[in-house]
């Protein structure tokens, strides 16, 4: 398999391990873009999803926004943003956030909406305020699903953040774009492998957060 050969060649090349184009630098850049995009998307998607899920209203609006956002092509948005506002971090964040908001918004809404109504009724009946019902009764139960939405968004961001390199920013996409123009497949495959690796790390991270944050009573083990 020459793909494996590429991987081996890429990672054994000492030049790939330091400097501004070294793996650690590019990896951290990629993590920074991804984390920032995820944070912005979560700051938009979570509150709206929690609120609409709790009240059970606005489901149609959520579905509409999510479907519309999903229909927007990330690469196209990037090019358009660059043409309209120039190079920088902002034009990269726009497509990444647009990509990540629908999974976060929709799963959070569905997760909270589908919480068993009986405990919510009981909580209300014992005099809990609505905010407390949302955060102390609904969210703990909805958490696994909410996390799965965030995880899905995070994986898509990690994979798509490679486009940052297309507008002269760093990140693991650098290897892929540079490799494409230099006809250096070793770089392309190496970059792709690193992205997949980061996706795995992300999965592991979410798994760990799930273990720590989700009550054993909800996990049922």
């Amino acid at each position: 398999m020459n793909v494996l050969n590429f991987v081996q060649a890429f990672f054994s090349d000492g030049a790939h391990w330091h400097g501004y184009d070294g793996i650690p630098t590019r990896f951290l850049e990629h993590v920074r873009y991804a984390a920032l995009a995820l944070a912005i998307a979560a700051a938009i998607g979570l509150p709206v999803g929690l609120l609409t899920g709790h009240t059970g209203r606005g489901g149609n609006a959520i579905a509409f926004v999510a479907n519309a956002a999903r229909a927007l092509p990330s690469f196209g948005l990037l090019v358009l943003a660059v043409l309209l506002i120039g190079f920088g971090l902002l034009p990269v964040m726009i497509p990444l956030v647009v990509l990540a908001v629908p999974p976060i918004l929709v799963t959070t809404y569905e997760a909270v909406r589908t919480v068993d109504p009986a405990p919510v009724d009981a909580a209300r009946g014992m005099g809990m305020r609505e905010s407390r019902i949302l955060f102390r009764v609904e969210v703990p139960v909805a958490l696994p699903l909410i996390l799965s939405g965030l995880r899905s968004a995070a994986i898509q961001i990690v994979s798509t953040a490679t486009i940052a390199a297309y507008v002269s920013l760093g990140g693991l996409g650098r290897y892929i774009i540079d490799g494409l123009y230099q006809r250096n497949y070793e770089k392309v495959v190496g970059g792709a492998t690193l992205v997949a690796l980061l996706a795995l790390v992300t999965l592991a991270l979410f798994w760990a957060v799930g273990r720590l944050a989700v009550s054993p009573g909800v996990r049922r083990r």
Binding site: I155, V188, V189, G191, A192, V195, A196, L198, A199
Partner: peptide, 18 residues
């Protein structure tokens, strides 16, 4: 499949050109 999904499309395209 999850791993494959995380591989950026562009990387796939480039490798397949060969």
């Amino acid at each position: 499949t999850t791993m494959l999904y995380a591989v950026p499309s562009l990387a796939f395209f480039v490798v397949l050109i060969d």
